[in-house]
Amino acid sequence: MSLVVDILSAICLLTGSFLILSGVIGVIRFPDFYTRIHAAGITETLAASLILIGLMLIAGWGLVLFKLILILLFILFTSPTASHALGKAAWKSGLKPHGLVNKHDED
């Protein structure tokens, strides 16, 4: 039983690490600001959840588990708000997205 939990947590940690690396490489590689927000989004939703779930599996039942859940909930609640604030501030200050496929109506 404990071996299964160990393997599950290892899978979660490794997948999370890989996704986090993909996300930050996207932040380096992607051509403009608006596309970079999407890449940062990977690291803040699924990758962070996977790493924290991996830690939860190691921690087992107890107070530590609830603290990890609290951290996870907090990250999931705040990250969409932070990215919306970033996108809105950039849009209001007149930063235009590059390389659009469709034409959009200007404000």
Binding site: I20, V27, A48, I71, A82, L86, A90, S93
Partner: peptide, 20 residues
């Protein structure tokens, strides 16, 4: 805004790093 985005990313990673 790119800098703020990178700063936000750095902060979230610090949270995960402290936990790990």
């Amino acid at each position: 805004f790119d800098r703020v985005l990178a700063g936000n990313l750095f902060g979230t990673k610090v949270v995960l790093l402290i936990a790990v």
